[in-house]
Design a protein around this nucleic acid. Structure first.
Lengths: 373, 373
DNA sequence: CTGAAAGCGCTTACAG
DNA sequence: CTGAAAGCGCTTACAG
C-alpha cells in the first residue's frame, strides 16, 4: 500500500528507501548523519523523506537503538502556581541541557490514590526513559524504589527519605523559620499556625512544622490548627482565635491559603496588618507585591537548574555501571548530604535550595488589647 | 544475562516467560488479559512478573500493536497561570475519558523559533500518538497541516485558521467586547488599549482588537498602544496619556499586564479606580478578588472539557476511514461552525468557549478634569 | 560508500 | 488453553 495513496498510514523507512532508490540502511544513516554517506545520496534521501512527510517511528527507533534520550517528568497538577513555574523552568533547563522532557500529571486528589499514578509511572518506565524527575508526592518512594537501579530517579521540590532516591528540594525548614522570625520580631506573642497534614503535602507539613518550632523557640505561644479537607473550618477557627485575642497572627503554609484567610477575615471586617498579621509561603503568585503579601519566595529557578544539572551528572556516570568492578564512588553533591546509596557504591544526591523572605505588608505589630468578637 | 544479576538491564517478556515456565505468547496474553488463559497460568505469570519487576517495554508493545493509546499535548510554558490551569484541566478531563496524555513544552521565547518546537512535534508524531492537542501558537498551522490526515489535530485555546485543523478556542471577541462595554458604560470617552502583536500572542491580539472595535462602536476614542518586547515603553506611554488626561482608562490584553500597569501607575501616585480605570483579561489569577481586578474570566474548565470531548469523538470516527467509500460526513460540532475539511468528507471542528465578565473594582467613572502631569 | 541480515521486545493470528 | 512464528519499523555491526 503506497503511503501516498493512504495518507492515514504514515510512511516508513522502506517507503523512503524505495522512493530514493537506496536501501533502508542507507536511509537510516543519511537521516541520522551516522557513518559515511555520499553527498548525492544524502540529498536524494532527504528529499524523498521530506516529500513523503516521513517522520521516523520513535518506538521502532528506540527499540532498535536500545536507548531513549528522553527523560520523564511526573508532576502534580500545575494549577498551583508554584508547580506551574517549576514545570516551565524544568523544561527550559532541560532544553538548555539538550534533554528531551516528556511529562505526565497525576491526580492531586488525595482521596483518589487511584491507579492513574502508577500507570503514569509505568508508562514512563516502560518507555525506557533514561531518567526520571518526580515533582510530586503523589507517587510514593516505595513505588519508585523498584526502579532505582534501572535509571536515576530524582525527586524535585519535595524532601525524599528513601536512601535510594535522589532529591533536590526546597529548604522548607529555613522558609518556615524565617517567616516565624519575621512574625516573632514584629512582636507577636501568640500565633496560629495552619498545619497541612503530612500526607496531603509533605513540603507544606515540614515548613509549617518549622514555623511552629521557630515560634516556640522565640517564646511565642503557638496554636496549631490542622488543615483538613474542609479548609473553611481551619480558617474559621483561626478567625475565632484572632477575634478572641488569643492570637494576633496567622501563619499559613502557602500563599493560596493566605489569600483565603485574608478573604475570610476581610469579610469579617478584619484587615491585615491593622487587625492581625498573616503570612504565606511560596511567593510565586503574580501580584504578590501589589497585595503586599508577607511571604517567602521559594527558589524555583534555582531548583530547576540544580535538578537538571544533577540528573545530567547522574546520567553521565550511569554508563560506567556496565562494568560492576569499576563502579564509580562518591558524587559531586552540593549542599546537604545524607547517608544513602542510590546505586552500588554511589552516594545519593541531597540538595537543599534556599529562597528569600518577602517582608511584605501583611505583618505588623500586634494590636493592643482585643475587644472584638 | 540474568536480569536478577544485572539490575540495570530491565527484564523482558522472555525473562518472565522463563521464570513462569511458559511461552512469551502466554505471558503477553496473561498480562494483557487477552484471550483465554487458565487461572493457574495467570497467577504464575503475574507472580513472576511482579517478582522480576517486569514493566512491558512501551515501545515494543506499541510497535507490535501498531497503536498507541496515548495522545500528545503540546503547550506553551505554564508560567502563565491561564496555561497552567488549562494544562491541569486537560489532564483531568483526559483521565476521566480514559486517555493517556503525554506533554511537551515549547519555548515561549518568540525570538527563538528554534528547532526545539519542531522536534517536540516530530517526537510526538513519531511516537504515533493517536491524537494531538496543540495548546500554543508556537507551532504554526503550516507545521501541523502535513499530519492532519494521519491523526486528529486539535488546537486548544487559540483560534485556528487552517481548514485542516480542528479548534476549540476561547471567545476572545466576546471577552474583548464585554470588557470594552464595561469601560464605556462607566462613562469613559477616551481609552488606551494595549495591543499585543499578533505574532506574539494571537489570542491576545484578537481580544485587544475586539476591545478597540467595541469601544469605537460606542463612540469612545481609542489610543492603541502596541506592546513590544520592552513592555515598559507601552505602559509608560499609557501613563503619559492618563496623566495628560488624553485617556481615562487603560485596557490590557491580560491580567499580568494589568498588574504591571497598576504597579507602574501606583509608583507614579495614580490609583484605580480613583485616578484611572484599568482592565485585564483571563481572570484565573488567585487573589483577583482581593485585588478587585476588573477583568474577564475565560472558560478554561469548559474549554478543557470540550477539547477532550471533541478529540474523543474525532478519535472514534477515525477508524472508519479505513474504508474510503464509507467516509463519514458531517460532524457534531457545537457553537460556531466554519467551512473547512479536516479529512475526506468531514467538517472541521470549530468551537468557541464563552467566559464571564468580572466587574471588579478597578473600573470606575472617569475623573473630571485632569490637572496632573 | 552501500546493502543484506540480525535483532530490539512485544503482539497477534495460526496451529495445535 | 498454549506455543511457534511472523512481523511491527528501526539501527547497527558485518561484509562487500
Amino acid at each position: 500500500m503506497r503511503p501516498d495513496t493512504d495518507p492515514s498510514t504514515p510512511p516508513t523507512i522502506d517507503d523512503v528507501a524505495h522512493a530514493a532508490g537506496v536501501s533502508k540502511s542507507t536511509v537510516s544513516r543519511a537521516l541520522l548523519g551516522r557513518g559515511r554517506v555520499s553527498e548525492g545520496t544524502q540529498a536524494k534521501v532527504r528529499q524523498a523523506a521530506l516529500r513523503l512527510g516521513y517522520v521516523p517511528n520513535v518506538m521502532a527507533a528506540g527499540l532498535a537503538h536500545q536507548t531513549s534520550t528522553t527523560i520523564g517528568l511526573m508532576l502534580r497538577d500545575a494549577s498551583n502556581p508554584a508547580y506551574g513555574l517549576l514545570f516551565t523552568r524544568l523544561h527550559q533547563e532541560a532544553r538548555n541541557a539538550g534533554l528531551h522532557l516528556v511529562s505526565t500529571t497525576i491526580s492531586s486528589d488525595p482521596t483518589d490514590p487511584g491507579p492513574e499514578q502508577i500507570t503514569s509511572l509505568h508508562w514512563l518506565v516502560g518507555l525506557r526513559v533514561s531518567g526520571l524527575i518526580v515533582s510530586t508526592g503523589g507517587v510514593s518512594s516505595e513505588e519508585l524504589e523498584p526502579f532505582h537501579a534501572r535509571l536515576p530517579i530524582l525527586r524535585a521540590g519535595r524532601p525524599e527519605s528513601s536512601s535510594y532516591l535522589h532529591a533536590v528540594s526546597y529548604d522548607e525548614v529555613r522558609a518556615g523559620t524565617e517567616i516565624a522570625e519575621l512574625v516573632a520580631t514584629a512582636g507577636h506573642r501568640a500565633a496560629a499556625v495552619l498545619q497541612s497534614p503530612a500526607q496531603l503535602s509533605y513540603p507544606e507539613f515540614v515548613r509549617a512544622d518549622a514555623m511552629a518550632r521557630a515560634l516556640r523557640a522565640r517564646g511565642v505561644h503557638v496554636h496549631e490548627i490542622p488543615l483538613g479537607q474542609q479548609n473553611d473550618d481551619a480558617v474559621a477557627h483561626a478567625l475565632d482565635l484572632v477575634r478572641s485575642g488569643e492570637v494576633t497572627a496567622v501563619l499559613c503554609p502557602n500563599d493560596l491559603r493566605q489569600l483565603e484567610v485574608m478573604r475570610t477575615f476581610s469579610a469579617a471586617g478584619l484587615h491585615a496588618p491593622e487587625d492581625y498579621s498573616v503570612t504565606g509561603c511560596d511567593g510565586v503568585l503574580p501580584g504578590i507585591d501589589l497585595m503586599g503579601l508577607s511571604t517567602y519566595r521559594i527558589g524555583v529557578e534555582k531548583l530547576a537548574e540544580r535538578t537538571v544539572a544533577q540528573l545530567q551528572s547522574l546520567l553521565q556516570k550511569r554508563p560506567a555501571a556496565q562494568d560492576p568492578s569499576a563502579a564509580p564512588v562518591g558524587s559531586d553533591m552540593q549542599g546537604h548530604a545524607a547517608p544513602g546509596v542510590a546505586e552500588a557504591g554511589q552516594s545519593v544526591v541531597r540538595e537543599l535550595i534556599p529562597g528569600t523572605l518577602v517582608p511584605g505588608r501583611t505583618v505588623g505589630a500586634p494590636r493592643r488589647a482585643s475587644s472584638k468578637g
